[in-house]
Amino acid sequence: MKLHTGLAAVLLLAATGPLFAQQDFAGEWAPLYHEDGPERLPGPELADYTELPLNDAARLRADSWDADRISVVEQYQCRPHGADYSMRGLGNLRIWADVDPITQKIVAIHTHLLAWDSERTIYLDGRPHPSANAPHTWQGFSTGVWEGNMLTITTDHLKENYIRRNGVPRSDKAIFTEHWTRHGDYLTVTTVIEDPVFLTEPLVRSDNWYLDPGQHIGIFGCEYASELPKPEGTVPHHLPGTNPYLHEFANYYGLPYDVTRGGAETLYPEYRSKITGYHPPDHCTRYCTCTTLFNCNLP
């Protein structure tokens, strides 16, 4: 009898123990905005390229960007965020898993985001990425591997999109890597964007979510319409050297203009010692707290 009990205990342990590393991410997750709130919620200010390792091509592309393009070019109006921008937490997130009934291993994880009803499948079954000639999509093609209890996801086949919503581009050749870790009711997603077209070094950021079982994700919906009639084929943009708004951000916050232009050097703490001529406003008047969309001191 004792022998049988011991054997049963061993079997029970084997059945519930970590035979293979994996973590349960399934559930309803709400984004936290204590990091980079102004950029993520109301949206970035024009010509704010701070903390982005941009090359000159990206900088000029952003300088030339005109927000009228969204109003004039119909095809921009229902264009969703790419997978990388989606994970900045611009909407609520649902995660669910497919489990192999034989092995009980997770073979795929799915995500659904409020914004544009964006859905993504992260394959964990070892399948290869598609051919270079296959189509690219907004959410790209994602595969994941477990590193202990951390899930590392690699996404490629992304359509061209933006790193920041003020015209800073991210190319269709970028590779997007995520590291998902769960700490109780919190999910931390560390993201790395490598873009040989527009970045001089990887862009590393992190975003956090909290478990919100009562969350309800509604239907997004989007229908394009001509908002600002222009001749067919019009593409609004600023010619080089003519964008009148490039200094607004620097002037408002009393920042030297060079600081706002971004670049790899501006990512690191040592850069602060090189900044001269910083004259911050006497007191904060906008975007002072910004942990939700409704307390951002929007003018």
Binding site: R79, S118, P135, H136, G233
Partner: peptide, 27 residues
Amino acid sequence: KYQEGGTMIVPGHGRLCDEADVVEYRD
């Protein structure tokens, strides 16, 4: 839906595309 898929486009050289890819190129 949301500027993806639908009509697929075979370019003269390079990968399969859809309308959104042509928009970037036209721009």
